[in-house]
């Protein structure tokens, strides 16, 4: 009996140690997590483009926007609202954020349409963010800045795997990448004259892309074959369709636009037609127009390699060319009469 009691005590002792160790872990996680959260917030307020976009958006008066652009960095760096506002005498805004997938874009749009009723929404359709690759960071960055908690929560649940939903609770893990950015940021804000957040969601760049390396690379690797776009339920194309439906339910006109990639790259793509047709089919399904500047550029040769900052993002010279072309299209088709 005595022996049994002592065994029980040792087991109790062991269990209490385990509980204490786990408790210690959570206390440390809370402390380190709080420090990392501080660093993360500091970084957000140190010129982070997504934060600046959301701040700008929340400063807009309700129902003041006429034109909204939605998409990834491809949108963020392709549409300068200032050009549209001056030419069309409207107020526009660019909701593009880095690597934003249509799934994230759908929730952002849902939130924006709570307080805005634009006449037109332009969806920038870029196949690179419509693949099946899992990239939760782009969803979390926006989720943290959306002020409507129910939409923010819905995005969190929809875009993140269960594993990442759990891991997100451990801030020492989730924000660990913020340390090096924080160490840079505390040395003072560094604003590059070549690339910076301008206003109304647009990120300006004046860097000129040197396509020499790309040409050499493509000469080595040969033609590029693109994977077919997935259009099944739950895919990114499916969320693009949901976004179009959301707009149409609210009598908002929709236009699909693909901002160009540099001609050197596009010339190497072997099967672009298939990707284009997949998007065109979505446009046809919802009876909306689709402007693919890769196709337009192939015919009209408006934009050259030097109008890009890298192989897939326009610099400001390219933005001006493409935006003016789009403005002419909008005028010709009486979008803002």
């Amino acid at each position: 009996m005595k022996l049994n009691l002592s065994m029980s005590n040792s087991r109790k002792n062991f269990l209490s140690k385990i509980v204490l160790f786990i408790l210690g872990f959570f206390i440390l996680e809370f402390i380190i997590g709080s420090i990392f959260t501080y660093m993360h917030n500091y970084n957000l307020n140190s010129g982070f483009h997504t934060k600046l976009m959301w701040d700008d958006l929340y400063n807009k008066e309700d129902y003041s926007l006429d034109l909204v652009f939605s998409g990834s960095s491809h949108a963020m760096e392709s549409f300068d609202p200032e050009i549209f506002d001056q030419a069309l005498n409207i107020e526009s805004f660019n909701l593009g954020t880095a690597a934003q997938k249509p799934q994230t874009g759908y929730y952002i749009l849902q939130h924006v349409l709570q307080t805005q009723q634009p006449k037109l929404v332009v969806f920038e359709v870029y196949w690179a963010v419509m693949g099946t690759d899992y990239y939760p960071k782009q969803a979390v960055e926006n989720m943290e800045l959306i002020q409507d908690k129910s939409i923010s929560k819905a995005l969190f649940k929809d875009a993140l795997s269960l594993k990442d939903q759990v891991l997100y609770q451990f801030k020492s893990y989730w924000y660990r990448g913020d340390i090096s950015t924080f160490l840079k940021n505390i040395q003072g804000p560094v604003k590059s004259p070549y690339r910076y957040y301008k206003e109304n969601g647009y990120v300006y760049s004046s860097t000129i892309f040197d396509s020499k390396d790309l040409k050499e690379h493509l000469a080595r690797t040969g033609p590029i074959v693109m994977d077919p776009l997935n259009t099944e339920e739950g895919s990114q194309a499916y969320y693009l369709e949901k976004s179009i439906q959301l707009c149409q339910e609210r009598n908002i006109e929709v236009l699909l636009v693909t901002s160009p990639l540099c001609p050197t790259y596009m010339q190497a793509v072997e099967n672009y037609k298939e990707t284009h047709e997949t998007i065109q089919n979505i446009a046809d399904k919802y009876q909306v127009e689709y402007l693919d500047y890769n196709i337009i550029n192939e015919k009209e040769q408006l934009i050259k390699d030097e109008n890009f900052r890298d192989r897939s993002h326009l610099n400001y010279s390219g933005v001006k060319i493409m935006n003016n072309h789009l403005i002419n299209y909008l005028i010709e088709n009486n979008y803002f009469t």
Binding site: F21, G24, F25, L28, I32, F170, S172, Y173, R176, I179
Partner: peptide
């Protein structure tokens, strides 16, 4: 001893 274990655990998590 626990401090050493916590050091290793948080190095795994953070680094």
């Amino acid at each position: 001893r626990w401090a050493f274990y916590y050091l290793i655990i948080f190095m795994i998590i953070i680094l």
